[in-house]
Design a protein around this nucleic acid. Sequence first.
DNA 1: CATGAATGAGTTTTCATTCAT
DNA 2: TATGAATGAAAACTCATTCAT
Lengths: 211, 211, 211, 211
Amino acid sequence: MPAEPSRPGPKPPRQAKREAASRRLLEEGLRLMARRGVQACRVEEITAAAGVGKGTFFNHFASKEAFVAHLVDMVLTDLARRVRPLGLAPQDGESLLAGVGTVHLRYFQLRPEAASLLSQACALERDSEPGRQIGQRLAAHLDLVASMLAPALGPLDWPQDHGRELALAILSLSCGFFWFGRPLGLGPESPAALLDRLGRLTAQGLAPRSG
Amino acid sequence: MPAEPSRPGPKPPRQAKREAASRRLLEEGLRLMARRGVQACRVEEITAAAGVGKGTFFNHFASKEAFVAHLVDMVLTDLARRVRPLGLAPQDGESLLAGVGTVHLRYFQLRPEAASLLSQACALERDSEPGRQIGQRLAAHLDLVASMLAPALGPLDWPQDHGRELALAILSLSCGFFWFGRPLGLGPESPAALLDRLGRLTAQGLAPRSG
Amino acid sequence: MPAEPSRPGPKPPRQAKREAASRRLLEEGLRLMARRGVQACRVEEITAAAGVGKGTFFNHFASKEAFVAHLVDMVLTDLARRVRPLGLAPQDGESLLAGVGTVHLRYFQLRPEAASLLSQACALERDSEPGRQIGQRLAAHLDLVASMLAPALGPLDWPQDHGRELALAILSLSCGFFWFGRPLGLGPESPAALLDRLGRLTAQGLAPRSG
Amino acid sequence: MPAEPSRPGPKPPRQAKREAASRRLLEEGLRLMARRGVQACRVEEITAAAGVGKGTFFNHFASKEAFVAHLVDMVLTDLARRVRPLGLAPQDGESLLAGVGTVHLRYFQLRPEAASLLSQACALERDSEPGRQIGQRLAAHLDLVASMLAPALGPLDWPQDHGRELALAILSLSCGFFWFGRPLGLGPESPAALLDRLGRLTAQGLAPRSG
DNA sequence: CATGAATGAGTTTTCATTCAT
DNA sequence: TATGAATGAAAACTCATTCAT
């Protein structure tokens, strides 16, 4: 057994190189699949962009579909990293909801590839293993958001057992805005103020009217 | 002079049969492409379901992509038929916006195939002619909705020249809800009351708080 | 029975119209098949150019291949009409051979479509009936030319039973010149004097050297 | 340092196998396309004959048309290899011309597939890239032959700037003889003496009559 | 007869995946 | 483990031919 296998320090170069290849594949894959379409983007394009041989792709990922599932996981994990902190500081329900909505919207504004990928990933057949994984990963994200929003549901008079639907509405609005907006050039050109208002839309739309 | 050549009456049977085949192709195509995915759905599946030969498909539509563009047009025309009446009766801005949102949401709830199709159609390459048509058709729909919402923008303090973004938000929320919700089984199972609240979300979210 | 069925006079208009359509199909077919290639040229292109419906084509010709066979016959009959008169006036063998060569060359110079058609028609499968007909028609033309050249063979010391080969050489040179020359732009641009010399080539090449 | 990395010696077996497959594809392709017709011959027939999978064909050649262009290049290169030596030894013009004609004629007699291929290749659409290549390759061959014949043109009183036409006449006669002769069974059955006389035809046909 | 809509066999080409090196 | 050549299932699309009107 090599020395210090658990110390995070400098990894054995073999392992480091392998991980770097994996990272490059995922990065370039996300970029290309978003730009050219998940189906239209060929595996060889991705490996060429990542600077590795075509066969290497299948040493790292079981199939193209599994690769997409991996990307979905990556994107949602990345998104969750921005959303989760909002649950740490105690806030009133409306602010929490507004924060979650705004973070989602800003995330997809900065990363339109993520919106493109998620929208297309849903089209993968449900009867393949990676397809199921994508659905489950999406559900997990909605569950996470729903659990964060749980404290806000009561005051907003939203049924506790339908938090997922609220999370789904937030995801749909934010992700769809850049997916459907892409052919129109909307999204990148929309003023930040507008997008922020849209981010708070859910919160204010559900808030009780004081009038 | 032949009798009443302009009366629509019984069409020549040739023409009628042809139109019926076209209609069946579009109906079955929408259903199958939504269920199995636009790309995964083979042309032959559609023609088999429509009860015509494979070649007939290409007598009616120049390509599979052109067929999808036709479907998008059909769906958006259908949707517009439900939305347009809302602009006829004078209402306050908030009611108008709520109506438009609710109609969109209900439309996609009743026709999840429509949500599925629109979401997938955006993935078609932008550099093909049918791909461009899809983008333009989508823009036309947003323009229609934006023009209907125009009277509501002022009171809601939404910039007049960004009506499209508001329409885009409504479309994204309603269409995306059933697209992203599909793998989770959400949508058909969500209580109608929830969906109605989501339909009014945009209206209430933008309305000035009276407090 | 209608009156005067055998008098050549004004034909019944039905018949006349039918023959006109046939003629237009053959004319346009020859033009288009020469320009775009026999295989690449679709039946519908021909009927469109001839101003008749697609189905009419198959009322006049059993198949596309049979149509090509008909064109070959037409072209070779036309060519024979120019060649045959040379056999009527008594001439010395060399002059006869030169005349036949020159007529062939001039024919294909004026009608490059004919050269194109004949060259391509040889590619039709030999195991179809029209394919066999094409071969036989070509053989018949060579036999005609050979029989005309027969009196010239003796003086030129060319074996009497290989007249076909001589005819074949004349056809190859004249037809091939415009077929292989087409991609190069040769043929139409070649000075008439050169072509005339080539037309006499066979005659002079076989003539006994007086030196 | 590895031993002699530059010595051509035994190639890496990977590369050698690949080249062998390419060679087999070209050989079998030439044979089959000549026999059954360029268009009628399916790619799968060629790969089956060459003992490789269907996909391999497209790893080696961009398209069926590109494959034909490659074959044309191969055939003309092969033909040029026989013709070129004639230009090295100084001869009088007539002998040179006779040599070139005879070599062409014998080449196509021994390789009727070559005549078949060249004749059919000219039918490929001019507006595709491989189609253009074929035309250019043919022009290059005629230029080569024309340049070889250049010294002979003066004595034969043939204009220096129309050497191409002379080369074209030689090619047409020799190649066309076996192309048009194929359906008739001429060519392989023609006595060698006749063919030799035809090979010298151009030379003697242009030579000044000493009488 | 003329027409043109319907038909489906046939063909090229693509591309994810495998596997020998 | 990386590579890229080989593979063949799959799918869109073509187009000659048929036939009901």
